[in-house]
């Protein structure tokens, strides 16, 4: 059952990613991205990280995507992007960079999954099924995420939020100065 879900969602994720890249209509691309982010959320669920999955839906598929679409709607006058691509060199650069990324992914996967190396998740012994771990310490479960965010990584968490707030205030200031 899990395997069927995984392959179904994986195929859908790849297809929607292709749709995102290949469609010329930016709004269609953005909608494909929503599908893709939803698929990734289901993959998180299959891994037992339900908090991450739902946060993915709330923040990415719900809020950020809509803002993307909003920005596209406001900034791009026509329905489709036409004319020559102003960033052509980027495309050529994309091929070697993509190849490097793929190589890295393969190496990481080989060392962690095939080699049965140590898993970094706290409380998750390699080889033990997720169901065997008590829910309180299950990695990705909401309790363990909360404990990590407000315990071990409290400082980093707070610094990140202050950074985001500063960025927000900065953007407001810059936007206001331009308008005057």
């Amino acid at each position: 059952m899990e395997l069927v879900t995984f392959f179904g969602v994986a195929i859908l994720a790849v297809a929607s990613a292709l749709g995102l890249v290949l469609r010329r209509n930016p709004i269609h691309g953005a909608l494909f991205l929503v599908v893709n982010l939803g698929c990734v959320a289901v993959l998180y669920l299959l891994l037992g990280a339900e908090f991450l999955a739902l946060a993915q839906i709330i923040i990415y598929a719900g809020a950020i995507m809509v803002l993307f679409v909003f920005a596209i709607m406001v900034l791009i006058p026509g329905k489709e992007e036409t004319g020559p691509d102003p960033l052509r060199p980027q495309r050529l650069l994309a091929v070697p960079l993509g190849a490097v990324l793929l190589l890295e992914a393969v190496l990481v996967l080989r060392s962690h999954v095939v080699g049965g190396g140590s898993s970094r998740f706290p409380g998750h012994q390699p080889g033990s099924p997720l169901a065997a771990v008590p829910p309180a310490v299950r990695p990705g479960g909401i309790e363990s995420v909360g404990r990590l965010l407000l315990g071990d990584y409290l400082f980093a968490f707070e610094v990140t939020s202050v950074l985001l707030l500063a960025a927000l205030v900065g953007v407001l200031t810059l936007a206001k100065r331009k308008a005057e």
Binding site: I27, L31, V34, E50, F51, L54, A55, I57, I58, A61, G62, A63, M65, V66, V69, M73, P135, I142
Partner: peptide
């Protein structure tokens, strides 16, 4: 679910996508 309310809020926030698609 043990995160029932989170599920509720997440799924209900997806409504905006359909609304936007209709408008566009």
């Amino acid at each position: 679910l043990n995160i029932g309310i989170l599920f509720f809020l997440a799924v209900s926030s997806l409504e905006i996508v359909g609304l936007f698609m209709g408008g566009w």
